[in-house]
Amino acid sequence: MIWGVLQFPGSCDERDALHACEVVGGEARLIWHEDRDLSGIDGVVVPGGFSYGDYLRAGAIARFSPAMEAVAEHAAAGGPVLGICNGFQVLCEAGLLPGALLRNQELRFICKQTDLLDDRGDVLSIPLKHGEGRFYAPEEMLDRLEANGQVAYRYADDHNVNGSVRNIAGVRNEAGNVVGLMPHPEHAVDPLTGSIDGRKVFEALEGFAA
């Protein structure tokens, strides 16, 4: 599987994302934000960082980049897309994922290891680091997301550090091929860092590759 990792001005986790794609057995290359050519790419990672300085709202400007136009087409065609942290914010702003990310409840930037629960109830130990990670959606949208199985990851009890509604750490689109989450699976793929649970987040999307 060949992954394309987007790179915006202000991205900072694209190198770890490239590494993670390779660790899970794929190839990976960087896609510059002005490049709208995704030919030969099976899956896309929209990585973490502070795209375009996070001016206005996190992810609000990045969604208009040529690369994101290509990602929207790739997603519409059913190709896998993984948005991590700022990448999650970008996907929400672009309307490819439901909901929005707000300032953390305590207004502090948080950096810590957290336990996530995936669909199967497996616990994944994955770090998070963000100032605007409080997932929000209106009640009726939350009910719909839960009914459709669109909640991809939840914080385990006592691990919801940012005040996200219903402990939601990550969501997927209706088709399931676009997934976004605030914690950083790309930082948890090497035993050196204490957890390799992040690999599962990448592997969970491999089935959507054409």
Binding site: L56, R57, A60, E93, G99, A100, Y136, A137
Partner: peptide, 8 residues
């Protein structure tokens, strides 16, 4: 489209 996010 840009200056506000109508969801929030």
């Amino acid at each position: 489209k840009l200056l506000a996010n109508p969801l929030i």
